[in-house]
């Protein structure tokens, strides 16, 4: 299985293309999942490609007063309003200390669009499902509650995120 490397500038079309690839793979019944790797704080996470609508760069975000601190605000994606979730806060990680252009991973739930705001977007990995392991019991619940397992990659661990659970709060 080849691994497509995705840069920060990855466009929607590329994602769509990947989407097709993934479906082809899934149809083949290989029992694999494609994940986009993202970084939130020091930790590497994987988001299933099939959940992703789009990946866009930094956006002007409108602050929504009195909303949960996890909600960063609302932004305009080609005429649709997207609610942005600050992933650092969602995962209980420390606030960003220096200015940084963060990326928006746009996902869809029940017809509404949400953006998972992450520090960096990495690459697309195709991983065997059976290689996914259960969480270590020591993992913090703020992370464990929103993930489906971990993958052991070269030298580090990647936590697979469950988009549905992230949006339940």
């Amino acid at each position: 299985m080849s691994t497509e490397v995705m840069t920060r500038e990855a466009s929607g079309q590329e994602i769509d293309q990947m989407d097709h690839n993934v479906r082809a793979v899934m149809d083949g019944g290989h029992g694999t999942t494609q994940l986009v790797t993202v970084k939130v704080g020091p930790q590497l996470f994987g988001i299933p490609v099939l959940d992703i609508e789009d990946i866009i760069g930094p956006q002007n975000v409108t602050f929504i007063p009195r909303s949960s601190p996890v909600i960063q605000g609302a932004l305009n994606l080609r005429g649709r309003i997207v609610t942005a979730i600050d992933m650092r806060r969602r995962l209980g990680l420390p606030e960003l200390t220096e200015e940084k252009n963060r990326m928006n991973v746009v996902v869809e739930r029940n017809g509404d669009l949400y953006s998972l705001v992450v520090d960096e977007v990495g690459e697309v990995l195709t991983l065997e499902d059976h290689a996914r392991e259960a969480h270590p019991p020591t993992m913090r619940s703020s992370v464990r509650d929103v993930s489906t397992g971990i993958h052991r990659l070269d030298g580090h661990l990647m936590v697979v995120l469950d988009v549905g659970k992230i949006l339940e709060f």
């Binding site: 409108t62 929504i64 007063p65 609302a74 305009n76 005429g79 309003i81």
Partner: peptide, 19 residues
């Protein structure tokens, strides 16, 4: 996830593209 905020009846996109 924002429905409980009764101070807002909705949101929209303005002419300049801002939400």
């Amino acid at each position: 996830i924002l429905r409980e905020l009764t101070v807002f009846s909705g949101n929209t996109i303005l002419g300049d593209g801002a939400v």
